[in-house]
Structure formats: structure tokens, C-alpha cells
């Protein structure tokens, strides 16, 4: 059963076709990597899937709802309820502690719950660092906080934009392990990357070139 389906999606900026008639689908619980060189349309696709932009033409079905025609207010609600975001630059609120950063996500979603937030931090191995400000955390630790923040509201889909782009190998592995755990729990993962190693961790890789789907690769080594 598909969670996400893009049907003939194009995004046109003036003369530039950032996305050109893209068709993809992602099943519930699937782990998909999206690869492609700069300018291939990864970011545009990410924005559309993340409910932060709308396609010029085509349909985007998220959990059966066509989000391509929704208002930006409705998109905000959908993003909050269904999607957990992880960014390359981590993006933490720099004057809030680790646990408070996790709670911000709860705050917008439903109710802040410090215990639950601490548990989520415990899951990414940072319970001890809960009261630290971002400036007191390493890059890897910050990204783990962001993963905790992304999963705190139990989203259907975790959308990660170059999640390991700014991490060393050790931290990259920690983050990928977290993704594996989430995948095992049935969370759908879409990871945008141009790191082949990160892509190989996924079940399937969609390669974008010039705004089109160039090819799809099934990772035969997945789970091994």
C-alpha cells in the first residue's frame, strides 16, 4: 500500500523545469533514498513531499490525500501531523536545550511532555545531554537530537535532507543505525542524499537527473 505517490509532477520556475513529469511511489514502511547531482531537482522534490511547496502540475498523494491543491495552512497541518523532518544543517533552536528542542515539536503538534521528550533523547543515546544547549553539543549529537525531534510525534514519514552531510563516519553510522531501527518499527523513510553509502542503506534508490527520474535501483544487499 503506497503512502506517497507522485503522478506526473512538474515544477516550473519561468523557463526552468525543476521537475519534469515525475512519477514515483513509496510504500508504507519503505525506506527510499533519492539521489542525484546538484540541480537535478532533489530539493524541489523534497519541498513538495515536505508540504512546503506545490507542484505546477500533477498530483501528490500523501496517505491518500492530494496535497497538491491544498492551502499553505492545510499543508502546515499535514506536515506537522504526518512528517518528521531531519536536515543537513541540524537546525536546532539555539537558545533552547536539547530536550526543549524536542518539546518544541510536541508543542506545535499536541502537548509538550518532558518525560516523553527525554525518552526520545534516550533512544538516540542523549538522555544525559538533555539539558545542554546546541552550542554545547557536537554535530553528531545535534543531528541525533534532530532525529529524536523528528520521531517524537510518531510521524508516518520521516523526510531526511542530507542527514549525514555534515557528519563524520562514526556519527553517520549512528544516524543510519537509528534509521534502521525506525525502519524496523515500520516508519516510512525518504532520505535525500548524494552519498552512495547512505543510499545503499536504503531499500531502493531513485536517481534524479535534470528533473526526471533517471532510474530506480533496488538494493539487493538491504538487510544483510
Amino acid at each position: 500500500m503506497s503512502l506517497l505517490e507522485l503522478k506526473g509532477v512538474s515544477k516550473i520556475y519561468g523557463d526552468l523545469k525543476a521537475l519534469d513529469n515525475v512519477n514515483i511511489h513509496v510504500d508504507k514502511g519503505e525506506w527510499v533514498a533519492i539521489m542525484g547531482p546538484s540541480g537535478s531537482g532533489k530539493s524541489t522534490m523534497m519541498n513538495i513531499i515536505g508540504c512546503m511547496d506545490k507542484p505546477s502540475t500533477g498530483e501528490v498523494l500523501l496517505d491518500g490525500v492530494d496535497i497538491s491543491k491544498e492551502s499553505s495552512k492545510a499543508l502546515t497541518d499535514i506536515r506537522r501531523d504526518k512528517i518528521g523532518l531531519v536536515f543537513q544543517q541540524f537546525h536546532m533552536v539555539n537558545y533552547l536545550t536539547a530536550v526543549e528542542n524536542v518539546m518544541v515539536s510536541q508543542y506545535y503538534h499536541s502537548m509538550p511532555d518532558e518525560e516523553e521528550a527525554l525518552e526520545a533523547l534516550g533512544r538516540v543515546g542523549l538522555r544525559e545531554r538533555a539539558k545542554h544547549l546546541p552550542s554545547q553539543l557536537s554535530g553528531g549529537e545535534q543531528q541525533r537530537v534532530c532525529v529524536a525531534r523528528a520521531l517524537i510525534n510518531h510521524p508516518e514519514l520521516i523526510l531526511a535532507d542530507e542527514p549525514t552531510g555534515n557528519l563524520d563516519e562514526a556519527n553517520e553510522n549512528i544516524v543510519l543505525d537509528l534509521f534502521r531501527q525506525l525502519h524496523d518499527e515500520g516508519t516510512t523513510l525518504i532520505v535525500v542524499t548524494h552519498d552512495p553509502e547512505v543510499a545503499e542503506a536504503a531499500q531502493r534508490t531513485i536517481v534524479l537527473e535534470h528533473g526526471r527520474v533517471a532510474r530506480e535501483v533496488i538494493n539487493e544487499n538491504f538487510g544483510k
Binding site: 502546515t76 497541518d77 506536515r79 523532518l85 537546525h91 536546532m92 515539536s105 506545535y108 503538534h109
Partner: peptide, 16 residues
């Protein structure tokens, strides 16, 4: 700006 963008990305409505 970035923090505000982040909050909005996390689902903060304009009213928030």
C-alpha cells in the same frame, strides 16, 4: 530567520 523557518517546518502555524 532560520529558527522561524525551522519552527514553521516543524508545523508551527502563523498564529504561533
Amino acid at each position: 530567520r532560520r529558527e522561524i523557518g525551522l519552527r514553521k517546518a516543524l508545523g508551527a502555524p502563523d498564529s504561533s
